[in-house]
């Protein structure tokens, strides 16, 4: 269980907190969506939940962040990475930049964990297979398309076998084809039963995956609940979030006096 309780986070030197009153539980097998306008604190929340803030980027945090009953701040540096995985927006700056093959790139994390050589190889193979990119193993990661590169980054994180996976707008920097590639991969991971937190503004992707959705406004939770309730909440658009296409159509249809169920049959 990854559990944030009444978390308030303030960047170094900032006058107002970037996050306030955040409570969130991510249990095994759960897929939670995080929506909100840009600058609403989605990325910051991911950094705090991954233990990178405040440890690595400074600032101050109040409230508690607990990982399976231990306070995140008390764990030694480098240990959290093996238990909480985080993937950022831009795949090119998320690659190590030192590996000349996809295989070595993915193996980088397990190598850092100091695992036995066979274990590193096994985990790398497993991660590549899980994302169906075994065929890229010998390629240079710098010479791949954005979508494939993001899959390599994701595989590099999966090879660490984290219990919790935090995805910070993993498809926002990708072209439509790349975004679809990554979204399908995430859907398979979700179906396999991982605990995933996804920050996204593409709600269509979230609608496919999430059981629960949290909407942020100016660093504070504005909506929090079962996915369908949040999607249908009329104030969602006021937060700068477009509901998933399916639901938008349904709302429009209802407004136009058409039975939304007829639309479902079409779309």
């Amino acid at each position: 269980m990854l559990e944030l309780t009444e978390v308030e986070y303030r960047y170094l030197g900032a006058r107002t907190p970037a996050l306030r009153g955040i409570s969130l539980r991510l249990a095994p097998g759960e897929v939670v969506g995080l929506v909100g306008a840009s600058e609403s604190g989605k990325s910051t929340l991911c950094l705090v939940a991954a233990g990178l803030a405040p440890r690595f980027i400074g600032g101050t945090v109040r409230g508690t962040v607990m990982l399976d009953g231990q306070a995140l701040g008390t764990l030694p540096p480098g240990e959290i990475a093996g238990r909480i995985g985080i993937v950022f927006q831009d795949p090119s700056s998320s690659l190590t930049g030192i590996m000349s093959t996809v295989f070595e790139e993915v193996a980088f994390g397990p190598m850092n964990l100091g695992l036995a050589r066979e274990e590193v190889l096994a985990r790398t193979d497993e991660a590549l297979t899980a994302l169906r990119i075994e065929g890229l193993a010998a390629r240079d990661p710098d010479h791949l398309s954005g979508g494939r590169r993001q899959l390599v980054v994701l595989a590099g994180i999966l090879a660490l076998r984290p219990d919790y996976l935090l995805l910070d707008e993993p498809t926002s920097e990708l072209d439509p084809a790349g975004a679809r590639l990554v979204a399908d991969a995430i859907a398979r991971l979700a179906a396999a039963g991982g605990a995933i937190l996804i920050a996204e503004h593409k709600t269509d992707l979230l609608a496919r995956l999430c059981t629960r959705v949290i909407a942020l406004r100016a660093g504070q939770p504005a909506l929090d609940g079962a996915a369908d309730d949040v999607w249908h909440n009329p104030s969602l658009t006021d937060l700068g979030v477009d509901p998933p296409t399916r639901i938008r159509l349904a709302i429009l249809a209802r407004a136009a006096g058409v039975d939304p169920r007829r639309l479902e049959a079409v779309g």
């Binding site: 540096p77 985080i86 190590t96 994390g109 190598m111 100091g114």
Partner: peptide, 24 residues
């Protein structure tokens, strides 16, 4: 400017862990 993002991404790959690394 990319330095900041890459540093974070490397932290996520357990570079901060102390102790020996596995060489393949």
């Amino acid at each position: 400017a990319e330095v900041e993002e890459r540093s974070l991404a490397l932290e996520a790959r357990a570079v901060a862990r102390r102790g020996t690394r596995t060489l393949l």
